[in-house]
Amino acid sequence: MAKVCQYFFAPQSPYAYLGHERFVRLAKQYGVQVEIKPCDLGKIFGVSGGLPLAKRPPQRQAYRLIELKRWSEFLQLPLNLQPKFFPVPGDPAAKLIIAARLAHGTDAALAVTGAIMRAVWAEERNVGDADTLAAIATECGHDGKALVKSSETASVQAEYERHTDEAIAANVFGAPWYVVEGEGFWGQDRLDFVERAFAR
Rank of each mutant, 00 (worst) to 15 (best):
E35K: 08
G49L: 11
Q188T: 10
G105R: 11
L102I: 03
A199N: 05
L75T: 01
G182F: 12
P57A: 07
H142V: 00
A158T: 08
L96C: 05
R200S: 08
R101M: 09
R101S: 15
P176Q: 11
V172H: 11
T153S: 12
H163K: 13
F193S: 12
E21W: 03
F185C: 08
A16H: 14
L191Q: 03
K28M: 02
R64G: 02
S151E: 01
V179N: 04
N126H: 15
P38S: 06
R22L: 06
K149L: 13
L77K: 12
Q6E: 14
H163I: 00
T113N: 11
M117C: 14
V112M: 04
A103G: 08
K84Y: 14
E35Y: 05
Q6S: 12
Q59I: 14
Q82G: 07
V24E: 03
E183N: 06
Y63M: 10
T164G: 14
A27Q: 01
I97N: 05
R25C: 05
Y7G: 07
K84F: 13
A197S: 14
L65T: 05
S48M: 06
S155Y: 06
M1T: 01
G42M: 12
G141R: 14
V148M: 05
E161N: 13
P92L: 10
V156T: 04
I36Q: 04
G128V: 02
L53C: 03
D131I: 02
E161A: 15
S72G: 07
L191I: 00
H104M: 05
L77F: 07
F85D: 00
V32W: 13
I168Y: 09
F8Q: 09
A111Y: 02
L75V: 02
G187H: 09
V112T: 00
E166I: 01
R162M: 02
Q29V: 01
E152G: 07
M117A: 04
P78I: 00
A158M: 11
V179P: 09
R25N: 10
E166R: 10
C140W: 07
R196S: 08
T138L: 04
R56G: 07
